[in-house]
Design a protein around this nucleic acid. Structure first.
Lengths: 252, 252
DNA sequence: TAAATTTTATTTGTCTGACATTTAAAGGTC
DNA sequence: GACCTTTAAATGTCAGACAAATAAAATTTA
């Protein structure tokens, strides 16, 4: 492991990359202790500050954890699904907001992925997950629910559906797609009529999941996608018309 | 923005979290310049080293980029799909390897997600993407191809299929699922017979995509999943039997 | 001896100050 | 006006110091 002082990249970035590659490549295994900062500084022939900056880069990606004290140090961290979820959600949220991804694009991706889970969920969901779905549907039917709370309940419903597939890899992937949509969904005002329609579709989906009918659940999700997109389209069109009453709306 | 010196968390972690929240929350916008390290140190009442460690944490997540020189500094970075891809692949790969996710679980997730893309890809794929798929199928049919090269071509084929959906959010999500499988796939030895079968299925899928037949493409992926899983199962069983000839295999 | 306490050594976390390097803008020269 | 030099500002790196946490070793005490 040698670093290149002539490289354009920072020394701390080079060191972080080398250690990261060693982790991904399996040379460093979970719970293994890295040499102390002082030893690493010696090995790489850099100062301790530089080593520390490299380690902080790795810590930010949950690749290592550090512990103070006599037997402390930096240890290779087992990346848990929990940690990966939150990273995934942050990244997905930023991707959507920073790249001006349209509502339609995000929505299409979300429902396409969710349909991938539906047949598995219909087959494997626990009674508890089904109960969660039912409970969220009931909550969504309450008339005095705020739009924000309605969206949050929507996310909870869909998470239960996804988790029903009993595949942590799917749950991880879907976490980003479902949760990152929430800021976009929060831009929508849900009328009583549209809520009624959504609740009805949610109920149909729950029925299909309960009956173990993956096809019906998939169809329900497709209907829900159509409903959501047309709802969003009408709302965005109305807002555009309000802002520029005389011009053709530019769309979303 | 105040930091809590009594918190158990490191100062640099606290500062990084605060800035990150400001980015995710939209208070800091793309290409905006953060105060200089010295100014941040003043504001947060910490040393410049601590600020730097916080900034390196953010840089590791591609949330900021830094530039040296008179007009330099730390700028909020537009998170590109490219950057997100590679982060996603790293995270997915580590999740699978560190949590001992079974081949079946990963495989199921991958094909479920890919089937979500198939109908869209059948509808929208460009001629170029179809040509890529055909080219990879041809490559896979070459008899003297190494197992590793066969797997790499497999990934390229499926990426073209996924990108055919023309939805960057889907491509981003699938990048993790498809590429992270590669180390697992590389554990498999592909016999001439099994390669023949896979190439045939790939060819059928390409046909379906060319014909715009999403249903057939989906079915082809299902067949491919069955084939891949049974192939893996037989290979893992054979290896287990070789190691412990007298005991029941523990499976993968 | 056994338990409780103190000491010690190690390691990360933070601070200070310095210098190197990069970069763009300001100033000067032809 | 074009070209060169200087300057200032910012990040990158280094060195050394101390603080704080922590576990093991050493010591004291019952």
């Amino acid at each position: 492991m040698k670093i290149d002082p002539n490289s354009s990249a920072d020394l701390s970035a080079q060191i972080a990359t080398m250690i990261k590659d060693a982790i991904v490549g399996g040379e460093l295994i979970v719970d293994q202790r890295l040499p102390s900062e002082a030893e690493l500084a010696d090995q790489f022939q850099v100062s301790r500050s530089t080593v520390r900056e490299a380690l902080k880069r790795l810590a930010a990606q949950s690749l290592i954890r550090t512990q103070r004290g006599a037997t402390g140090g930096a240890f290779i961290n087992r990346l848990s699904f929990e940690e990966a979820y939150s990273q995934q959600i942050t990244t997905s949220t930023l991707l959507l907001s920073m790249n001006a991804v349209s509502f339609d694009t995000a929505c299409e991706a979300r429902y396409a992925l969710e349909r991938a889970c539906a047949p598995l969920s219909a087959e494997r969901r626990t009674a508890d997950q089904l109960a969660t779905m039912r409970a969220e549907v009931s909550r969504q039917a309450q008339p005095n629910l705020s739009d924000e709370a309605f969206c949050a309940s929507d996310v909870a419903f869909h998470r239960a559906l996804v988790d029903g597939a009993a595949n942590p890899v799917l749950s991880y992937q879907l976490a980003g797609a479902v949760e990152a949509m929430q800021p976009l969904m929060n831009m929508i005002t849900f009328s009583a009529r549209s809520r009624e329609k959504i609740v009805s579709l949610h109920s149909q989906i729950a029925d299909a999941i309960e009956a173990g009918d993956g096809g019906a659940a998939t169809q329900g999700l497709t209907d829900l996608e159509v409903e959501t997109r047309s709802l969003a389209a009408s709302i965005f069109a109305a807002r555009a018309a309000q802002k520029q009453p005389n011009q053709a709306s530019s769309g979303q």
